[in-house]
C-alpha cells in the first residue's frame, strides 16, 4: 500500500527540469560570491508579494554584503495586470532601473492594478527613463519571452504561489516562512557553511 502511494505521488510529480537560478544582471543585487543566494519568484500584482518587500529589505540590511538577491517573474494567471507589469519592469531593467521600477510598482500596486495597467509609462517618466525606448520595449516580444522563461522556470520547480523564495536552494513559500524559517536557515548557513 505504501508502494502504491509512493508510485502514485511520483507519477503525479512527473519529471522536472533542473532549476536554473539565473536572471539578467539588472535583476540581481548583492555580491556575486555572497554565501547566501535568495531567489524570489514574485508577481507585481500580488498583495502578498508587496508585503514581502519590507522583510526582504530587512534581510538585505541584516546580512549586508553576504546576500545575493535574484528576482524572477512569476505573474499568476489570476492577476491580469501582473504580466504587463513584469514586462514593464523588464523594460525599466533594460535601462538599468529595474529595482527602482520594482519599488514604483509595489508602492502603487493598488492604483495600476485597478486601472488596467495605466501608469506604467508614467512611472517610467517619473524615473527619467527614455520613454520612446520604454514604449518600444513594451511591444518587444523579447521582453515578454524573458518573463515567459521565468514562468517556465518556476513551473519546472513547482512554484505555484507567490512570493516563493529559495535560499541556497531551500524553498520558503510566503513571507511568514521567509521570516520565521528563512532567517534561522540563513543563520545556520552562515554559522556552518553551505
Amino acid at each position: 500500500m505504501a508502494l502504491a502511494a509512493a508510485v502514485t505521488v511520483l507519477a503525479a510529480r512527473g519529471g522536472r527540469a533542473p532549476y536554473e537560478p539565473s536572471a539578467p544582471a539588472y535583476r540581481q543585487k548583492g555580491p556575486a560570491n555572497a554565501p547566501i543566494v535568495i531567489v524570489e519568484f514574485s508577481d507585481f500584482q500580488c498583495p502578498a508579494c508587496r508585503f514581502a518587500v519590507e522583510p526582504m529589505r530587512r534581510i538585505e540590511a541584516l546580512y549586508q554584503g553576504r546576500v545575493h538577491v535574484i528576482f524572477k517573474h512569476f505573474p499568476l494567471r489570476s492577476h491580469p495586470q501582473a504580466k504587463p507589469a513584469a514586462i514593464a519592469a523588464e523594460c525599466a531593467g533594460r535601462q538599468g532601473r529595474f529595482w527602482d521600477y520594482y519599488d514604483k510598482l509595489y508602492e502603487n500596486q493598488a492604483d495600476w492594478a485597478k486601472a488596467d495597467g495605466v501608469g506604467f509609462a508614467s512611472y517610467a517618466k517619473a524615473l527619467g527613463l527614455d520613454e520612446a525606448a520604454f514604449s518600444a520595449c513594451l511591444r518587444d516580444p523579447a521582453a515578454a519571452a524573458v518573463v515567459a522563461r521565468d514562468v517556465k522556470d518556476g513551473d519546472d520547480h513547482w512554484v505555484v504561489s507567490t512570493p516563493t523564495f529559495f535560499i541556497n536552494g531551500r524553498r520558503f513559500s510566503g513571507t511568514r516562512q521567509l521570516t520565521e524559517r528563512g532567517i534561522p536557515w540563513i543563520d545556520k548557513i552562515l554559522r556552518t557553511g553551505p
Binding site: 502511494a5 502514485t8 505521488v9 511520483l10 503525479a12 510529480r13 513547482w158 505555484v160 504561489s161 516563493t164 524553498r171 520558503f172 513559500s173 510566503g174 511568514r176 516562512q177
Partner: peptide
C-alpha cells in the same frame, strides 16, 4: 487518494502556506 496525491506531489512548503 486524489487529494493526498495532489498535495504530496507538490512541495510541503506550498501546502504549509495554505495551512497558514
Amino acid at each position: 487518494v486524489a487529494s493526498g496525491t495532489m498535495k504530496a506531489s507538490a512541495p510541503a512548503e506550498e501546502f504549509a502556506l495554505v495551512i497558514e
